[in-house]
Nucleic acid binder design. Structure first.
Lengths: 193, 193
DNA sequence: TTATTTCATTGATTTAAATCAAGGCTTTTT
DNA sequence: AAAAAGCCTTGATTTAAATCAATGAAATAA
């Protein structure tokens, strides 16, 4: 039931069976149907969600009511509004299931207790967030320094799974361009090959 | 000598005098003159740098030899090519002093030893990187969802110090626009007020 | 199954930003 | 102090992307 999460944990920070069970006792399962929301803007983010199965996205909405996708999360990835989770402020992101999904939730209370009681958990979290930070920095660097073509190619190479499972206009939103522009970028790439 | 760093540490994770001295024993001071480099693309990033005094920037260079500023770091901020530091791969960023600066270096060896020997250090690092992640996510969200005007206003409001101390064309580079465009954005803002 | 919504593509037009180019003002350097 | 380099602004032109609009295909719901 928590296999994917516990294996990811174990892979970064090896766990004994007892530790495994200990961690498990803090986790909560949650299922979401496609199009259901884990978090709505204005709520407070009460848990970090780890995706055991399925696909989710987080996004924000600007003044023109345009959605901007911040993150996709497939199996093995974590998703939340970290700022809201940590500070208790209301969330600025929405989190929605793109497919029927199974999640592992770590509530704020569980998170804090684990941090206090289990050094390995702190290490795991540190490694997770470090990886997320590096990925984000790479994405930002790409966003300000590479052409749309190259960025799309890089995205497709890095995340072929997402390409398969997520509609194209959402990829466009993630890239910060319109669906029309992405369509033309793709045409250009196909032609040019 | 390490005052700014140790105070920043202490503020996040309170330290006894003994702990303070212990941490200190792992630190290395470094001075840089304006325009000197802490890191060049192709080197391996051997240390995390904390800015005690001065100002630095990190940037990458694209195929057209255009520089793109990734980060500014004034007093109290940390700067490095974290990916290179953690993996030992060659760096993709340059790090340059914008003013005569005084740094505190945490070498990779010191970092690992501190992580192993001092839980409070791991906590400090976790908090630092979490803050950096949230800031980066905010920046990315702004980059894909807000107009240049609004982004510049937000930047100016959040980092007035940087505006004072860094040439405008570097702000433009940081924002991913040309100096000419930023100049016009500013004119528009001034006129419009 | 049919109807409806969602999605991707393509074309025409508009809009925003990059580029090209020049001038004047500061700040460094010699 | 003079020369050089760096910086900011402004204007004219080009280029890339957004917007507007329409169509057909595919997926979803009735």
């Amino acid at each position: 039931m928590y296999e994917v999460f516990l294996n990811a944990f174990h892979e970064k920070v090896p766990l004994t069976d007892a530790e495994r069970a200990f961690v498990q006792s803090f986790l909560m399962p949650k299922k979401l149907r496609r199009k259901q929301y884990l978090l709505q803007e204005g709520d407070v983010c009460k848990a970090i969600a780890f995706v055991e199965k399925g696909a989710l996205r987080s996004y924000c909405v600007d003044d023109n009511s345009t959605e901007h996708i911040v993150q996709f999360a497939l199996e093995g990835r974590t998703i939340s509004d970290l700022y809201s989770f940590l500070t208790g402020e209301t969330a600025t992101y929405h989190i929605e299931a793109l497919e029927d999904s199974e999640l592992v939730l770590i509530t704020k209370q569980a998170h804090e207790e684990l941090l206090g009681k289990m050094p390995k958990y702190e290490t795991f979290i540190r490694l997770q967030i470090t990886g997320a930070y590096i990925a984000l920095q790479k994405r930002l660097t790409a966003a300000i320094s590479i052409s749309n073509d190259e960025r799309y190619k890089a995205f497709a190479a890095a995340y072929p799974e997402i390409l398969q499972r997520v509609p194209q206009h959402m990829i466009a939103s993630y890239m910060g361009i319109t669906p029309e522009t992405l369509s033309r970028v793709r045409r250009k790439i196909v032609r040019g090959k």
